[in-house]
Amino acid sequence: MNKVWAIIKKDIITELRTKELFSSMLVFALLVIVIFNFAFGFSAELLDLAAPAMLWISFTFAGVLGLSRSFALEKEGDAIIGMLLTPTDRSLIYAGKMISNTIFVFLVGLLMVPMFILFFNYNFLSTLVPLIPVIFLGSIGFVSVGTLFSAMALNTKLREVMLPILLFPIIIPVIVSAVKLSEQVLDGNSLLAASFSLKLLVSFDIIFLTACAVIFEYVIDES
């Protein structure tokens, strides 16, 4: 446990010092929202319908940006090899990286939502509070597979291109169920109105957290 915490702490210190990951993710997410507004010609009806999808598209695009940056930092000076040389189980390294990535992605989502609500004139409190667990569960699902794949993409020459190609088809269940849940929230219903989506999202998180923690070892070690 000490080891997992050490990895998380190291990532947080790095981020506090550089602020690279966080600021680029947030600015990117906001840009995507702005571009959507232009694309829909600022039509209130269209935007209303597209709002939940827009939230999650900007969120995942920003998340991919953050994930590839996070492992690029490990590659600088081959610091990750230093970590692999220590007697640390690979699943602990996965846990550490996964938790710190989730923290960053979740925080970006958390900052994005209030702005999103303001832009689209939703009721602040009644939407913000139920959206938080959705953002949290969505972040876990996205990052669980994302951490595994960004470690893979890191070692292929096509790294920036490869990560979204690998990741997006896999996380379709996360996107679909998160969009459905956000739809209910933005329509003023409770989360339980889409309980099937909620169950789906939670199962995705559990299944892939387990599977990726087991598989990570084969990805990170050089063959």
């Binding site: 379709i172 269940p173 679909v176 989506s197 995705f204 299944i207 598989i215 990805v219 063959s223």
Partner: peptide, 29 residues
């Protein structure tokens, strides 16, 4: 490249596990 071959295997496993979830999620629509 054996390393990349392993990556492909990892992807195949993840994709296969993902399939039932994909099916359920598209049934949401």
């Amino acid at each position: 490249d054996t390393k990349k071959a392993k990556y492909a295997a990892v992807f195949a496993i993840i994709a296969f596990i993902d399939l039932p979830l994909v099916y359920l999620s598209v049934r949401v629509m």
